[in-house]
């Protein structure tokens, strides 16, 4: 077996995956070839490294660190869903309040206007006040109050 053929079988040789005949051929070549033997030694070292890396030591605090980071960085899936939902609910509630405020205000305004007009006959004193305010706006009245009498 020549060098290139031997080299291609070295990983299988290390893993014990070669049949008897090929194993014997590789062994024979390695015993007589310094270069291939040197490479074989290096491959063995790489193989040992791969095995030592297989079960790495896990930092015992890693799981705590991860969970803490998650809690700090984000919400749980259901919390995310809940938060999303609560934001939508809040927006909807605000919209409802605004609309209700506008309509409520208009309704109250209408009632006052219609109420006043119907009660003007019953309560002439209120009617005169309202009429007075209509004719004499509040700003004008306040201005007159601040102006010294001549």
């Amino acid at each position: 077996m020549n060098c290139s053929k031997t080299r291609l079988k070295l990983l299988d040789f290390i893993d014990g995956n070669l049949d008897q005949k090929n194993t014997a051929n590789v062994e024979k070549h390695l015993s007589g070839c310094d270069v291939c033997r040197g490479f074989f030694t290096e491959l063995q070292q790489f193989n040992i490294l791969m095995h030592t890396e297989k079960k790495p030591n896990v930092n015992p605090f890693l799981s705590n660190r991860i969970v803490e980071t998650m809690v700090l960085q984000s919400d749980t899936p259901s919390q995310l869903h809940r938060r999303h939902f609560s934001k939508l609910t809040a927006a909807a509630a605000i919209a409802v309040l605004v609309v209700a405020g506008i309509f409520g205000g208009l309704e109250i305004g209408n009632r006052i206007t219609s109420g006043l007009s119907s009660s003007q006959a019953d309560h002439p004193e209120i009617s005169s006040l309202v009429n007075e305010l209509n004719h004499e706006p509040l700003e004008q009245m306040l201005f007159n109050l601040n102006t010294p009498a001549q």
């Binding site: 079960k55 896990v58 890693l62 991860i66 998650m70 809690v71 749980t76 899936p77 919390q79």
Partner: peptide, 25 residues
């Protein structure tokens, strides 16, 4: 975990961290 159970997530981390670290490594 879908319900937001923090303990369950902790258990998931414990169960799978070795597998993930090994693969990533």
């Amino acid at each position: 975990v879908k319900k937001g159970d923090e303990k369950a997530f902790h258990e998931l981390v414990e169960n799978y961290q070795q597998m993930i670290i090994g693969t990533a490594l």
